[in-house]
Structure formats: C-alpha cells, structure tokens
Design a protein around this nucleic acid. Structure first.
Lengths: 235, 235
DNA sequence: TAGATTGTTAATCGATTAACAATC
DNA sequence: TAGATTGTTAATCGATTAACAATC
C-alpha cells in the first residue's frame, strides 16, 4: 500500500526543471504545512495594517512557538529573509500561497447539507484560501430553497452526472457516518481526486484518491485530557 | 512561560496514591490522545455488532496505521490484552473513556451562534464524548427562536452573569476572528477554565487557562499540498 | 561600527517502527 | 502442542531546538 504519508517525510527530493537542471526542493513536512495557514492569517492582518517587514520572533511570539521553528517553516516556502531586518511581508504572503497551491482555486462539491455543511458553504475564509464550492448535494434537499450562499443544492443522486460534466478536484464529505462509505464509493466511481472527510468514518478508498480526515473529537480529547491533568496536578 | 505542552511529553511521571505509594503513570502523548476517539468510534461500532474481542492488527487495518502503534496507544490507557486473543472490547471502551476523562460530562457554553455554532449544538457525537452544552450566546440572538436543539440562546452581555451562577468548564468560541479576543477577555475575567477556539485568531490568554485551537485551514492546506504533489509527480 | 536577525549545521527530543520473547 | 497476539526492549525516523557564523 503506497501511502501518501511518504510525501511528507521532510527529505529532500531532486526535481528537474525544463532544461533538466536538477534542483533540490524540500518536500513539505506535515507539521509545517499545518502551521502555514496560521502564519498567513496573521501576515494578511499585518499587511492590512500597512506593515512592510516582520521578524521570525515577532511571528513566533504571536503563535506561541519558537522563532527558529518559524524560520524553518518559512524556509520550506523558499522565501529568503534579510538578516537584521526580517521578511518582506507581501513577498512572504505570496511565497506561502504559492507553496500551498492557493491562488488558483480548487473546485469542490459538498455532500451533506446540514448546519455544518451550510457553515462551510458560507465560510469566507475558505474562499480566501483557494476553495470554491461549486455545488452541494443532499439526500433531502431543503424544499424551501435551492441554494445557500449562492451554492446550488441538488439531490445526491445527481453526483455522478455533475462530476462528469464539471471539473471538480475535491469532495467535502459532511454526511452522517453511516452513509459516508456509500457516498464515497459513488464519488470514487465518478473519478473524484480528493475527499475532505468530516465524518467519523475511516473510509476505505483506493490509493489513487487523496483523503484528509478531520476529527472534532480529537480536539475535544486533547482538551479533556489537559483539564484532567490540571485538576489532578492541583494537590 | 510555563506551557501546557510540557504535559504531553510522553515522559513517565511519578504520582502518589492516597497511601503515598508511588506508582508510575504515563503522561499521555499528544498523537496518542488524538487517535483515541477514532478507536472509540470503531470499538463502539464493533460492540454494537456483538463482537467480544478485537486484535491490534484488526484496529490498525481499519485506521490504516501499524498494529504496534495501536498497541502502544492502548497501553497508555492501562488496558491489558490477552496474547493470542486480543483486547476485550467493552473493557477497552471503558479504559479509553476513563483515560479521556469522559463519562462524567464537561459543561460547556458556546459563544457565536452562526451555522457552525448551531451545528455543534446539535452534534450528537460530542454528547457521546462527554460534552454538554448548557447555554449559547450571541451578539444578536435570533429573534424567531430562543433555543436550538434545546440549548437556550442569550445575548453575549449575559456571559459573566451566567458563568457566575453555573459551573461551566469550557467555552466554545465560534465568533468572527475580529471579536475573538474581546470575548475571550470576558470569559477569562469570568473565570473560565478552558477555551475551545474555532476562530482563526491566536488568542492572548493567561497560562492558567487551557486552550485548544482548531483550524480548518490547516486540513485544507494538507489537502492542497497533497494534490499539488500528486499532480507534479505525474510527468 | 553596533545591533538585529537570518540561515546553517549539529544536537536533542519525541514518536513510530522493528524484533522477538512471553503467554494465552 | 501450534498458532496467534500481546507487551517489552531496542532501533530508527522525524521534528524541534540550540548555537553561532554570516550579513544586512
């Protein structure tokens, strides 16, 4: 089973450009990729305030991590800073966006239009981060309205047809856990490239399809354990 | 800055029981804690199907991780399995729940009743995982209804008063990023113990208050980078 | 020049995996 | 007994941190 995990080893890989000159590029590390959007939020805010330059320690302070970690993360995006000065903010924003492949939008469909699904449809920050939801599907589309936030809602049965017609990179899965595998099978059969899985189900899926699983409960577990440890360390 | 991170070092700590007999307990590792809820989902499913025992490799196969990692994770919960047989499912469920401090409910309030907030109010799985949302707050409580899924909605101005009156462990923060710090200040001043932060803001908060930050964009970043790497490795 | 901050190289720390003896 | 699977101990791998020379 060739796992995608192997893409995230932090090992250097040799690529060749058009003239076949080899150049080394860092294959991104998972934790680094996960931190980059936070940097981006903050940098955009600084940029709006009219700031020009920022140092790794300034970012680190805001994020509550070590400055050297910020420098290592930013290094992955191929930005170079200026000793004694810091990083040029708008260059940095550009580098992070390019690195994450944002800028050119990802087309997505969403399956499962409950409150959570609707909240994603209206999530402006996702749009800022290169995600465009072009259609949504539900077993029982709401009778009273055909769209939310401008995204049209269709019955689930239309998934295959729509994916055949439009170029869609990504499906966002928000259905109940019990329905998740069945919907996934349809999506995979329709040639979807990636699935962003918000259900609690561990999907069985071919290696050729990318998945990203989100699990609310894992955050709650962290909180719960932190609370327990604090409590029990107070005696 | 004494960081809570230090509670998650995987180093053994010596605790003392009532008779002051020292016993070693594993301080939980972050990745382990984050995986436990997934195990729990799966184990409850198996349990419903009437299964009695499960092996680490069976779980590992479902989760797409290595069996030894499952055994290591389960070891943290103090369960012991039976060589040649596996783990007793209902014992295992009990051990994980105890370890995560679930069972006795966490009382929470939610601030910011948009679609996302409403989806949390109705999220049955969170209730299964020991979270009880007792009240919600919003700057503009919906005029047409006083509650969602049985949880009453109050104006934000009432936060301090409610926290003074009821025992609340946790605040769930779903307000827009620009309002996040102001609401946090109120919560902290009202003596909240922990904040589950769904905003994109890195909150400034005293060391005594626990935080857990969730960031949708970090998952999207992972997906986006995976997609980019697949694309660019196809030539 | 002096102060600030990057970027490099090495060290440490933490998490996962491997190997295998113990045991049902 | 033979087969299966745990749990222990050691090895590897990956991520973060430290130290400091280079540079604006």
């Amino acid at each position: 089973m060739a796992s995608l995990g192997s893409f995230f080893s932090g090992i250097e890989a040799i690529h060749y450009d058009e003239d076949m000159n080899p150049h080394i590029s860092k294959i991104p590390k998972q934790p680094t990729v996960r931190r980059l959007p936070s940097y981006l939020y903050f940098l955009r805010e600084l940029s709006e305030k009219g700031e020009q330059f920022v140092s790794s320690s300034y970012i680190a302070n805001k994020m509550q991590i070590e400055p050297i970690l910020v420098r290592k993360d930013l290094e992955s995006t191929l930005i170079t800073g200026t000793p004694g000065v810091g990083y040029h903010i708008s260059d940095l924003i550009k580098c992070i966006e390019d690195f994450l492949g944002w800028g050119k939008a990802l087309n997505a469909v969403l399956v499962g239009v409950d409150h959570f699904g609707i909240s994603l449809l209206g999530h402006r920050e996702l749009i800022n981060f290169g995600l465009r939801i072009v259609a949504a599907f539900d077993n029982q589309p709401p009778k009273c309205r055909a769209s939310f936030f401008g995204v049209p809602i269709y019955p689930t049965a239309f998934i295959a047809e729509l994916l055949r017609t439009f170029s869609v990179d990504l499906a966002i899965l928000c259905v109940p856990a019990k329905e998740a595998q069945a919907v996934t099978d349809i999506l995979v059969a329709s040639g979807i490239k990636a699935i962003w899985n918000f259900t609690s189900e561990n999907l069985a899926i071919p290696d050729t399809v990318i998945t990203q699983k989100e699990d609310l409960a894992s955050g709650l577990a962290m909180l719960s354990v932190k609370l327990t440890h604090i409590e029990s360390s107070r005696y």
